[in-house]
Design a protein around this nucleic acid. Structure first.
Length: 175
DNA sequence: TAGGCCATCTGGTCCT
DNA sequence: AGGACCAGATGGCCTA
């Protein structure tokens, strides 16, 4: 994987200018909307045998499409904020270069694993009492610890940390 | 220039 | 019914 430092990207957002426009200019937005739809390969879409669920006029359909594009954009922004928050709590050595999403998830997973095995080792295998967790939550936790205990018999916490550390460095070198 | 990563658009499906 | 979620497609930016 590559280490990247990105500048600000300037992307053309059709919906933003379209939604901010006067109603009379929505026809232009609808034109933009249909232009992109035309480009898409109809063969590549999943075949649907269903009749059209919502028989709206093309203008109305396009307005709804633009609205849902906006919602989807907001949703992705929230997701990216969550990724950023995760990046900030994972110790890594690429302070100057942003971790990619896949790197973030992989490191997070291994970081949690190494912390869990450390906690397990320090607590001598005793289950910590988790406030507010019901019986089902407790059994999940227990299952998890059982699993971790089994793993830790095969692998020392130090080994887990070593693995995590190695991974951090391999990301740094852009493997 | 190829390849990786990402943002955005899009339509189908699921959920409330 | 309408919004949320998802996955595929597309195209831009960046680095090796």
């Amino acid at each position: 994987m590559k280490a990247k430092s990105k500048g600000t990207k300037h992307r053309h957002v059709v919906a933003q200018d379209a939604l901010g426009q006067e109603p009379t200019q929505n026809s232009e937005a609808a034109l933009k909307c249909s232009r992109r739809t035309e480009k898409r390969n109809p063969e590549s879409r999943k075949a649907s045998t269903r009749p059209a669920k919502r028989p709206w006029s093309s203008k109305e359909r396009c307005m709804r499409r633009l609205e849902s594009n906006e919602r989807e954009r907001q949703r992705m922004h929230k997701l990216n904020n969550a990724f950023q928050a995760l990046r900030e709590v994972i110790p890594h050595v690429r302070a100057e270069n942003k971790l990619s999403k896949i790197e973030t998830l992989t490191l997070a997973k291994n970081y949690i694993k190494s912390l869990t095995s450390t906690v397990l080792r320090m607590s001598n295998g005793h289950l910590p009492v988790v406030e507010g967790s019901g019986s089902s939550g407790r059994s999940k936790l227990y299952e998890h610890y059982q699993q971790q205990q089994q793993q830790s018999r095969e692998e020392e916490p130090a080994e887990q940390l070593q693995k995590y550390s190695t991974q951090i460095h391999s990301f740094r070198q852009g493997s």
